[in-house]
Structure formats: structure tokens, C-alpha cells
């Protein structure tokens, strides 16, 4: 798992790569929450390179989502691989997250 932070306009884009599973969920949580707590209220999680997510990983997405809701901020996901999109669909998470096909549409929405 690897995360990279880039600024794109008013958005903080976190590029997630690799696998997010039980072994590194904590690490992932810290990386993302650091961005959240840095005061940014517009975050895009770019999942182009995310090729596996376990339920522990989903939990972190959820924590971030809830935190952003509490901050009245905005969290968007984009560029999910089909397998990951499937997991979001199966778990019903697609209904609570704003998911976009790519970063551009995420930003312009």
C-alpha cells in the first residue's frame, strides 16, 4: 500500500496504490486521516492503483467518510477498478460514497 498526496485546485487528491487489507489498514488510516485533520475539507481518493480492499480497508473508508460528514466536508472516490467497484456495490457502500469514473468528473461535480 502506498499513498501520495497531490493538490488539484481546491481538492486534496490522495492517490491510493496497492492493497488495503488488515495488515496495513492502520497505516492507511493514519495517512488519510492526517490529510483530513490538516484542515482540508475537500478530498478525493484516487483509487486507480488500488487493486484490493478488505473489509478492514472499507472500514477506514467509512471512518473517513464519517469524519468528513462531521466536518461538513466532502469526500469523493474516483477511478475505482472494476473489482473494487464490485466490492463497493456488493456491500452497499456505493450508496453512501460519491463515486466518480475519473478525477476530472469528481472535481467538476
Amino acid at each position: 500500500m502506498n499513498t501520495t498526496l497531490v493538490k488539484s485546485g481546491e481538492y486534496s487528491v490522495i492517490i491510493v496504490e496497492g492493497r488495503v487489507d488488515t495488515t496495513n489498514a492502520g497505516e492507511f488510516e493514519k495517512a488519510v486521516m492526517d490529510v483530513v485533520e490538516s484542515g482540508t475539507d475537500k478530498i478525493i481518493l484516487d483509487c486507480t492503483g488500488l487493486n484490493y480492499i478488505s473489509s478492514s480497508g472499507l472500514r477506514i473508508f467509512l471512518i473517513v467518510h464519517k469524519r468528513m460528514l462531521a466536518k461538513k466536508g466532502c469526500l469523493k472516490l474516483c477511478s475505482l477498478q472494476p473489482g473494487i467497484k464490485e466490492i463497493f456495490d456488493i456491500s452497499g457502500f456505493s450508496t453512501i460514497f460519491s463515486i466518480f469514473p475519473d478525477q476530472q468528473t469528481a472535481e467538476s461535480d
Binding site: 467509512l62 464519517k66 456495490d89 456488493i90 452497499g92 450508496t95 453512501i96
Partner: peptide
């Protein structure tokens, strides 16, 4: 069919 309900414990 796939569900539209989220897991329990969230909201």
C-alpha cells in the same frame, strides 16, 4: 440482485 442496503453498524 445486489443490495442497496449498507452493512449494519454504520448509521
Amino acid at each position: 440482485e445486489k443490495t442497496k442496503f449498507i452493512p449494519a453498524g454504520l448509521f
